[in-house]
Simulated scan of single mutants.
Amino acid sequence: MKVGLIRCMQTEDMCPATTCFRVMQDKKVAFEGVAEDISVIGVNTCGGCPGKKAVTRAAEMVKRGADTIVFASCIFKGTPIGFPCPHAEVMKDAIVKKVGPSVNIIQSTH
């Protein structure tokens, strides 16, 4: 699995994505049952509200080899601040439309 990770720009100064990387490495939570090796192709933010830059950034990671776009838990669950992104679904739908159905989408890392 070749992963492109999208994270919330609002939480990047308080969260170094350590748990996201750990669950990928240990194949836990969202990655439980993944048989193949997991490699991170790229990590980027959504670009800030309303997350429009996430679309082109996800497409670029796919162009560079990602077969899976993963949203860090900060986007759909609001970790660590407890406030999920109000634009998460629209952002996800726009990414799916841009990269196509062959790219796997994971809505939350942990």
Rank of each mutant, 00 (worst) to 15 (best):
T11L: 07
E89W: 12
R7G: 09
A54I: 00
R64N: 15
R57H: 07
C85F: 00
I81R: 07
I41N: 04
I81H: 08
V96Y: 03
N44Y: 07
S73G: 14
G42Y: 01
T18Q: 15
N104D: 11
C46I: 02
Q107N: 15
R22E: 11
C46E: 02
A59S: 13
E12S: 13
V90G: 15
R7E: 07
C85L: 03
C8T: 10
G33D: 05
D37H: 10
K2R: 13
M9G: 11
F76M: 12
I41P: 00
V40M: 03
P50R: 09
F21M: 12
Q25H: 15
I6L: 11
P16G: 14
F76W: 11
E12A: 11
G33H: 07
I106Q: 02
R7A: 05
E89I: 13
V55M: 06
D93F: 06
R57E: 10
V23P: 03
D26N: 14
T79Y: 15
I6G: 00
D37M: 05
T109S: 14
L5R: 04
A72C: 13
D13M: 15
G51D: 02
F21S: 05
V40Y: 00
V62R: 04
I75C: 11
E89V: 14
P101M: 09
D13E: 14
G100E: 05
G78R: 07
C8M: 10
G33C: 07
D67Q: 04
Q25I: 11
V103D: 08
M9R: 10
K92F: 04
K2G: 01
V90T: 15
H87E: 07
I38Y: 04
E36V: 09
C49S: 13
K63R: 14
K53V: 09
Q25D: 14
T11R: 05
T109N: 06
A72E: 04
G65T: 03
H87P: 00
C85N: 05
